[in-house]
Structure formats: C-alpha cells, structure tokens
Design a protein around this nucleic acid. Structure first.
Lengths: 143, 143
DNA sequence: TATTTATCCCCCACTTTTCCCCACAGTCTA
DNA sequence: TAGACTGTGGGGAAAAGTGGGGGATAAATA
C-alpha cells in the first residue's frame, strides 16, 4: 500500500527519485500516466492492467468513455527504475503536471501521485477547509 | 481504549514520546496520519486498515473521494517506536499540525490525537461554549 | 556511408537526512 | 535511599537523495 508524502527534486534531465520505501512495492517496472488533477499517477503493472480492463468494458459509443480512455491511456508509459532508484518522466507529462523543480510524491493507497510542489500546496490548502465537510458526507454510517 | 491528556515536548529532530500507558495498546508498530482539525491521528494498525478498506471501496472517479483519500493516505506513515518509546513525526505532518515544541497528546477512544498545545487550547475554549448545542443534535434517542 | 548530434543510462562523489544507540535528569515506588 | 521507569537531549553510523561527467546507442544530416 502506498502512503506518505515525500519532497524530491526533478533535475534538468527529467529524473526524479522514487522514495526508497516504495521501490519494493513497485518492483522494477511499472506504469506512469496522466492523473486527474494535473498530477502524474504511478501504478504497479497489475493495478494498471486492472483499470485498463475496467475502461475497456465501457462502450466506445459513449462520448465520456472515449474521452476518459483517451486521456488515461495516451499519457501512459512503461517505466523502469535506473540503478539510483530514479525514473525518467516523459516531457509531455512534465508539461502536463507543470513540474518545475520541487515536486511532491504522495501515496494514495493503490498508486503514487507526483505533483508540482506549489500546485500540491494550493490543492491541499484549498480543500483543507472543505475537508471537514467532505468527510462529513463520504459515509452515512460509522466506519 | 485511549483516554487522557498528556503534555510532551517534540524535539528538534521531530521526535515525541508516546505516553507509556498507551504503548501496550499500540504495540510496536502503528500508523499516524493527518487529522481533520489540523492535528495528527494515531491509529493501531487494525483500526487504520479498517478505515483504508472503507476508503478503497470509493471509486477514484469521484472528486470528494479522491480528495479525502489523498488527504488521509498521503499523511499516513507506518511508525515504529524507538527504544525510548518515541516516534518520529514526518516533517509534512509537523508543518500541517503546526507543532512547535509543546504538544498535547489526547486519547479519543479508538485513536490518539497529537496537537500543538496552543492550537489545542484554542480549539477547546472555542467550542466549550457551543458544547451544549453540539450535544443537542448528536443523538435522537436515549443513549 | 561517414560524421555529427542528441538522447539515454550508468557510474561516481557529495550532501543531507534518518535511524540507532548511549547518557542524563526527574519522578515514583519499594 | 536505592532502583526502576519515563521523558529529553545529543552524537555517530548508515542510508537516501542529488548533481554532474562520460560512454554507448540511436537518430539526423551531409
């Protein structure tokens, strides 16, 4: 399971270190792709394949299904760690996530997310106030 | 069950001692994460896993579910006590909970909460007056 | 085809952080 | 008063993150 928050730098060559505690879970080869809030998703192969299966079950005759599948699949790249535990982020994804130098890598259960630090701070502070309300409505009964 | 209130200091290295009477309940490994009112939650593994299971049942295509999962999971860290009975609070959580030196550790039933002392006092005094109203709407029938 | 250019990896070295251990002071108990 | 336990502080070794150089491979151009 992916949990935690790490602040790493992406260098001029587009490399960023994957936090060492995640490397065991991810193994040597995995998938990164576009995420929904202008961040980058990092999935283990199994998880990614599972989502792809789900997406393929949607009819291509639905406009939203086509759009989302296109979004999700076109951003995807198979990734391997280098010997220093870093990954090479393809430049379209760097642009998409607006990564400059300081990045945040967060675990969200079944995946990692890579954010530009500034964007992440903005997102978190924008929903800090609502978090109480969000939590209020997520579940009806006791969890 | 976690009850009581303890005042401990967090040191320069981000370490804080867990009150000794809780160590038996928590065991050697447990989880800390972001809490809703800018405090830190401390959960035994079982309790945490239970909440995670609930969160994982929510689809990542729902905005609120993504936000809350990100909030909850990204703040989480697996913790082990050192030989002095202390935990290492990751710096993002120190920032989030605004911990300076004096902290308060309170038991709230199924979890512990770690607060900055000043923030804790403010929070408590701010809702002392409303407590009557708060209690009013908690239950419909006799408890 | 030959030469140049660019890209991608791998390796080395430095810096920073994290973790573990030891030591001390205060408090409670026997 | 002695001994055990709890909370606090600091030092040192190990690991993790960062940046740069160089060589191999591939692409581009003449």
């Amino acid at each position: 399971m992916f949990i935690g928050e790490f602040h790493h730098n992406i260098d001029d060559k587009g490399r960023i270190a994957i936090p060492s505690k995640y490397r065991d879970i991810l193994g040597n080869s995995f998938v990164i792709t576009r995420g929904i809030e202008h961040c980058i998703y990092v999935y283990p192969n199994d998880t990614f394949n599972h989502i792809v299966t789900k997406l393929e079950s949607l009819p291509f005759t639905k406009k939203d299904a086509r759009a989302f599948t296109r979004f999700f699949m076109s951003g995807a790249t198979a990734i391997e760690l280098d010997k220093q535990g870093r990954v090479n982020i393809p430049s379209p994804l760097i642009t998409y996530a607006n990564l400059s130098k300081k990045c945040v890598i967060v675990g969200t259960g079944d995946r990692l997310e890579i954010w530009d630090e500034e964007a992440f701070n903005e997102f978190m502070s924008s929903c800090n106030d609502e978090m109480s309300d969000i939590a209020e409505n997520l579940f009806e009964e006791k969890i």
